[in-house]
């Protein structure tokens, strides 16, 4: 009955995995997917060397592209966070839009992002003709 036994083990592993993930999800509910800018700045010491996600609105006029490096500032209306990022820039990224950056604060006080995610618009609107 080795085949049956193996199936049993696989099934048990899958079940445990599924339940484990559910537990992880529950844990994630208390941990957070991202922090707001003020929350991050307020607790920045506790994040010292950890990879964190911060979300904020891209402040208008702060976007600078220097070669492959992108610089901008995100804000939540109360505090600002300068960000520097190298990599693929998502289409939805623009001034005034929301972005989520993942990375660490560097010694100069700038957030070095490894990942940049732009939030989708909360409304879908038809393009104005011309394109």
């Amino acid at each position: 009955m080795t085949l049956k036994r193996r199936k049993f083990v696989i099934a048990a592993i899958i079940l445990v995995l599924a339940l484990g993930y559910l537990g992880y999800k529950g844990f994630m509910a208390s941990a957070t997917y991202y922090y707001e800018v003020s929350e991050f700045i307020g607790q920045q010491d506790s994040f010292a060397d950890k990879n964190v996600r911060v979300s904020g609105t891209v402040a208008t006029g702060t976007i600078e592209k220097q070669g492959s490096t992108l610089k901008f500032t995100i804000t939540d209306g109360q505090k600002d966070l300068p960000v520097i990022y190298k990599g693929v820039v998502p289409d939805s990224f623009k001034a005034g839009g929301e972005a989520v950056v993942e990375g660490k604060l560097n010694s100069a006080g700038t957030f070095e992002a490894k990942t940049l995610l732009a939030k989708c618009p909360s409304k879908y609107e038809p393009q104005q003709t011309g394109g």
Binding site: L22, Y24, D91, T115, A118
Partner: peptide
């Protein structure tokens, strides 16, 4: 991938959907 810039991220709805697949 084109809109967020990543193929995957461990955010709640995506993770829960993956869990559904396992269920």
């Amino acid at each position: 991938r084109p809109v967020w810039g990543v193929w995957w991220t461990w955010e709640p709805r995506l993770t829960a959907t993956l869990v559904l697949w396992f269920i």
